[in-house]
């Protein structure tokens, strides 16, 4: 690397304050003729929005490095409203392998949008989330795990960091050890027979096992599941996330869920009482078509 070691360093050059950090590009916005506003999740400074000047020109020296999903080492100087990116080096080029597969691209988009939403305050350190995002994008780039599982594992753990982990192995209300038959997003997860409320769904036992495996990183168990179980888990995870975020994620309806295994064997059960469609509806908004043809899941959100 031409200009020093990785990590965060700050220098004070009189009136101009420079700092350096590694970060993941979450999203980019066009600005003016050839500039972009880059939103990064950095290791030390949390979310940073900074201007990258001239990066849309083909002659830009670092425009290619500041594409979404890029893991970069960047130097910033502090501006009056937005900081300005002055130098960039690539740490990991996650974008190249990810955009070569549409399913991984849609999953990565949902990961970066979630990270963006979960870090409301700019400049507030979010090291755990940063490590989680880089880990998830690395897993997608390597392509050795199902993109859908990687996304759901990320969403569950990101929610756990935000304090919204669903109760899976115990009752969300009374804390009685489970597993329990009912699951209610509004109530915070699994519910025992006594605490069950109208509107709860009844996931298959395998669905609860997969939820716990994804939350705790048990990939052996997670990968030994059918497509139907994964699809149901995706629905619950998406409903849980969007309930807590209090708004729809734009990228989730586009996430492609492809069958890699046995055909669908079961669906989420329901109490069949008033209110049960809310969870199911929210869940359906995240499901793509389950055909092995790989047609994009284009269903719009619930």
């Amino acid at each position: 690397m031409a200009w020093g070691l990785r990590g965060s360093t700050a220098w004070d050059h009189g009136d101009v304050s420079l700092y350096r950090d590694t970060g993941v590009v979450l999203r980019v916005h066009k600005l003016g003729e050839a500039d972009r506003i880059i939103t990064l999740l950095t290791r030390r400074h949390g979310k940073v929005r900074a201007v990258a000047k001239g990066v849309r020109r083909t002659t830009s020296r670092f425009g290619a490095r500041l594409e979404p999903f890029g893991h970069v080492d960047a130097q910033f100087y502090t501006g009056r409203t937005l900081d300005v990116i002055t130098q960039v080096e690539t740490v990991d080029a996650f974008a190249l392998p990810i955009v070569g597969d549409y399913q991984r691209y849609t999953a990565a988009s949902a990961i970066t949008e979630t990270a963006d939403r979960l870090t409301a305050e700019e400049g507030e350190p979010a090291l755990k989330l940063y490590l989680l995002v880089t880990g998830a994008l690395r897993a997608l780039a390597e392509g050795q795990r199902d993109a859908s599982l990687v996304l759901d594992a990320f969403l569950l753990r990101a929610m756990a960091f935000a304090g919204w982990a669903p109760a899976i192995t115990e009752c969300a209300r009374c804390g009685e050890p489970g597993p329990h038959p009912a699951f209610n997003v509004q109530a915070g997860g699994s519910l025992c027979g006594r605490c069950r409320v109208p509107g709860s769904v009844h996931p298959a036992p395998e669905v609860v096992v997969l939820l716990a495996a994804l939350l705790h990183g048990d990939w052996t168990t997670a990968e030994d599941t059918t497509f139907a179980v994964r699809r149901d888990v995706s629905g619950l995870v998406a409903a849980h996330l969007q309930w807590h975020l209090e708004r729809q994620l734009r990228s989730l309806p586009f996430v492609e869920r492809r069958a890699r295994e046995a055909p669908i064997t079961g669906r989420l059960g329901s109490d069949g009482v008033s209110g049960d469609t809310e969870v199911a509806g929210a869940a359906q908004g995240t499901r793509g078509r389950d055909s092995s043809e790989g047609v994009a899941g284009t269903g719009q959100g619930a």
Binding site: T112, E113, T298
Partner: peptide, 11 residues
């Protein structure tokens, strides 16, 4: 172009 973050999908 396909951009899930901006709500643009194949349709």
């Amino acid at each position: 172009a396909l951009d899930p973050l901006s709500g643009v999908g194949p349709d």
